[in-house]
C-alpha cells in the first residue's frame, strides 16, 4: 500500500467521463474539491460537506456516491461520471436532462447535478420505477427551490413504470 505523507500532494489518476485524467491531491483532499478545483469539473456542486444534501453526488463505478464524503485518493483507478458526462459539448441533452428541461424541474440549478446523477444511477439498473420508489431514491437530495413535484415528474418521464401525461 502506498503511504501518502501529510501535506504533500501525490498524483491521482482515474477516468472522468470516459477520459483518463491525472491531478495532484493531498491525502485529505476531498473528491469534490479535487473535481472542482484541480480538474475544473465545476458542474459537481458542494452544498453541505456532511453528506446530507446530495448536491455533490457523482457516479463512481456506476454507483451514486457523495463526493464530499470520499477522498480524491480513493477514486484512484475508478470510473467517475459527473454531470458533464451526461451531454458532451454541443450535443443535445440526454433524456434525463431533456425531461428536466421540459418539466421546469430546476430553478437555481445548484442541486440539479446531484439529482441527475442519482437518477442516472437508477437508470443504469435498466428497470422502471414507481413514483414512491423515485421519491425514496431522491430522499438523499435536497432541493430548496421546487418542492420536488416537477423533479419527480421529470424522473417518471424517463424511469417511470407508466407514461405520465
Amino acid at each position: 500500500m502506498k503511504i501518502l505523507k501529510d501535506g504533500v500532494k501525490a498524483p491521482v489518476t482515474f477516468s472522468l467521463n470516459g477520459e483518463d485524467i491525472e491531478g495532484y491531491a493531498e491525502p485529505r483532499t476531498l473528491l469534490s474539491d479535487f473535481l472542482r478545483h484541480e480538474l475544473g469539473a465545476s458542474g459537481t456542486h458542494v452544498a453541505c460537506e456532511h453528506g446530507v444534501c446530495g448536491a455533490c453526488t457523482v457516479s463512481v463505478d456506476g454507483k451514486a456516491v457523495r463526493s464530499c464524503l470520499m477522498l480524491a485518493a480513493q477514486a484512484e483507478g475508478k470510473d467517475v461520471q459527473t454531470i458533464e458526462g451526461l451531454s458532451k459539448g454541443d450535443e443535445d441533452f440526454g433524456d434525463l436532462q431533456e425531461a428536466f428541461h421540459q418539466r421546469f424541474a430546476l430553478q437555481c440549478g445548484f442541486c440539479t447535478p446531484g439529482m441527475l446523477m442519482t437518477l442516472a444511477s437508477l437508470k443504469g439498473t435498466g428497470r422502471s420505477y414507481s413514483e414512491a420508489e423515485i421519491r425514496d431514491a431522491l430522499s438523499g437530495n435536497i432541493c430548496r427551490c421546487t418542492g420536488y413535484r416537477e423533479i419527480v415528474d421529470a424522473a417518471l418521464d424517463v424511469l417511470g413504470d407508466q407514461v405520465k401525461a
Binding site: S42, F93, H101, F110
Partner: peptide, 10 residues
C-alpha cells in the same frame, strides 16, 4: 437558463 445549468456549465 436550463441550457447552461443542465450541462453543468453554470
Amino acid at each position: 437558463e436550463d441550457q447552461t445549468l443542465l450541462r453543468g456549465r453554470g
